[in-house]
Nucleic acid binder design. Structure first.
Length: 508
RNA sequence: GCGCGCGUAGCUCAGCUGGUAGAGCAGCUGACUCUUAAUCAGCGGGUCGUAGGUUCGAGCCCUACCGCGCGCACCA
């Protein structure tokens, strides 16, 4: 039997029906609370002796004959309830036999301290708000099965308090991110996810189809080309925080759908983007951790600007001796990589090999926040070249803990050069049979031809940023419902069998 | 896609060189009016991921498949 996938617990079902038979709704409605669990601990003196209404999930029951204690958990914490036969009356006390771990109840009573000093609600009346028909995970052993934790995230949230804290932190981080950008005059926009042509990055897209228009569509792999159209249109500072989709492998750092922040600032360049990233991450650190230091997986990361700048081609030469601009063609690039013990695909292009070499020799060294800059133009088709070095792009990637956190460049706004770059990509695709290189986006080229101001652009992996601040080792720890294969066995409708037995399949 | 590992009760886990499955918690029954991982007495609970194979005998060995994790590859 798959964990958590069995049918409902017959004993709980029987209790639920017994309640209903006595005219008590096991799935109650609105319940007005006057305090949260945490209030009663923090402000006990103010509450002591007063009547309070609390609601939440039952996490523990301790029966003592004619008196019963229970722990009630809400979003803020846990408060103890005390039920006594003397206080409730025999009839109401007897109804406690319907109560199970995991039930959601509302209770009203008087706040007091037990002999042991525990703030407690002495219950005068209580109501079932939702009868739990399945056992919830053990409070003390938690839920460890990684698959189940993601498949049934609600159980993970119930069993493992740190999970909720991590997602709340992510929420605060994104809220702060928006605030930071709004204060700098950026306008948040939403652009299409369903697109005829998925461009702005190299990745295999997901394909889909619109029936009414009989139109093949893809899910976007980046936000870039739409946001730049807005820059052309005179929106000088725009950003979008949204989902992008790449039809690629899954790993501790990759989910097929993930959240990107992309922003574009007219009349700015790479220098402005560096300052922006530094300030933004520093700002997040101050607000989320209270200081500039982020402790991530045992490493103290100092986000204080300015971050070190490392020139990519120089770092590569220092690390493995390859003078990249002297590499003639794809074949020589592959040979050099293999000579250094780096495996590359037989059809790999120069640019692809460079990515591999940098990932292998340079990136792991970039632990503290660092800018790696000056990528070759050949792997930066949307970036402006340096004025004095046409083969080097005015581009950086920001790294932390050896992981790429951001990617930025001075945007290429020359439509003729942009078209040339797209054509070079088409040529590379033809050479390498790559499925990741998109077709040239003619509509985007047309926009550039109307004139795009010089612009600085930036992309940030929001999930990875969340990993940094939560200390997560897997991207799945910061995505509530990461992509998973569906459960194989179709489960029959739980409880339906008992409820409808003999009644046929007729539906009202 | 390739490699390695894992899959045993609702949950967390044991299970020896192969001899027919265990604990704690949860559940059920009973006792108990200040407990808080309550305590005490008793009870039930398993197609050992699935399907084959080897063997007198398989949770354990072999094969395939399914699922998950990790690493590699792809990428952010």
């Amino acid at each position: 039997m798959e964990g958590g996938q069995g049918s409902v617990d017959p004993a709980r079902l029987a209790k639920m029906r017994a309640m209903a038979a006595e005219g008590l709704d096991p799935y109650g409605g609105r319940f007005e609370r006057t305090a949260a669990a945490d209030d009663l601990h923090r402000a006990f003196d103010a509450w002591s002796g007063r009547t309070v209404r609390v609601a939440g999930r039952i996490r523990a029951i301790r029966g003592h004959g004619r008196m019963t204690f229970a722990d009630l958990e809400d979003a803020t914490g846990t408060i103890q309830l005390q039920f006594t036969a003397d206080g409730l009356g025999e009839e109401a006390y007897r109804r406690l036999e319907w109560l199970d771990l995991g039930d959601v109840v509302g209770a009203e009573g008087t706040v007091f301290r037990t002999r042991a000093g525990e703030p407690t609600v002495g219950v005068a009346s209580w109501r079932m708000l939702s009868k739990s028909l399945r056992p919830i995970p053990s409070r003390f052993y938690g839920l460890r099965d990684v698959d189940l934790r993601q498949r049934q995230r609600y159980l993970d949230l119930i069993a493992n308090p740190s999970v909720r804290r991590a997602f709340e932190l992510r929420s605060r981080m994104v809220a702060r991110l928006r605030r930071f950008l709004d204060q700098r005059g950026f306008v948040e926009v939403e652009t299409p996810i369903l697109v005829p042509l998925a461009g702005g990055a190299t990745a295999r897209p997901f394909r889909t189809h619109h029936h009414a228009l009989d139109l093949d569509l893809s899910l976007r792999i980046s936000i870039e080309l739409h946001l730049k159209r807005l820059i052309v249109g005179g929106m000088e500072r725009v950003y979008e925080i949204g989902r992008v989709f790449r039809n690629e492998g899954i790993s501790t750092r990759h989910n097929p759908e993930f959240t990107m922040l992309e922003l574009y600032q007219a009349y700015a360049d790479l220098r402005d983007m560096m300052e922006l990233v530094e300030s933004m991450v520093h700002d997040l650190a101050l607000h989320l951790t209270g200081g500039p230091i982020v402790d991530c997986q045992g490493t103290r990361l100092d986000t204080t600007p300015p971050w070190p700048r490392v020139w990519l081609l120089e770092a590569l030469e220092a690390a493995c001796g390859v003078r990249w601009l002297e590499v003639e063609d794809d074949a020589e690039a592959r040979a050099k990589a293999r000579a250094l013990g780096v495996e590359v695909d037989a059809a790999a292009s120069r640019g692809h090999v460079l990515d591999k070499l940098v990932a292998h020799f340079v990136e792991p060294e970039l632990v503290q926040p660092t800018f790696l800059l000056g990528h070759p133009v050949e792997i930066s088709p949307l970036a402006k070249a340096l004025p004095d070095r046409p083969e080097v792009a005015d581009r950086f990637e920001a790294f932390v803990l050896g992981r790429e956190l951001a990617n930025a460049f001075s945007e290429l706004n020359d439509p003729i050069e942009q078209r040339r770059r797209f054509m070079a990509q088409v040529e590379e695709r033809r050479r390498t049979a790559s499925e990741e290189i998109p077709d040239p986006d003619e509509d985007f080229l047309q926009a550039l031809e109307y004139g795009m101001p010089p612009t600085g652009g930036l992309g940030v992996g929001v999930d990875r940023l969340a990993m940094l601040f939560t200390g997560a080792t897997s991207i799945r720890d910061v995505i509530l419902f990461p992509l998973q294969r569906p459960e194989p066995p179709a489960e029959p409708a739980p409880e339906g069998a008992a409820g409808r037995a003999g009644a046929g399949e007729g539906e009202a």
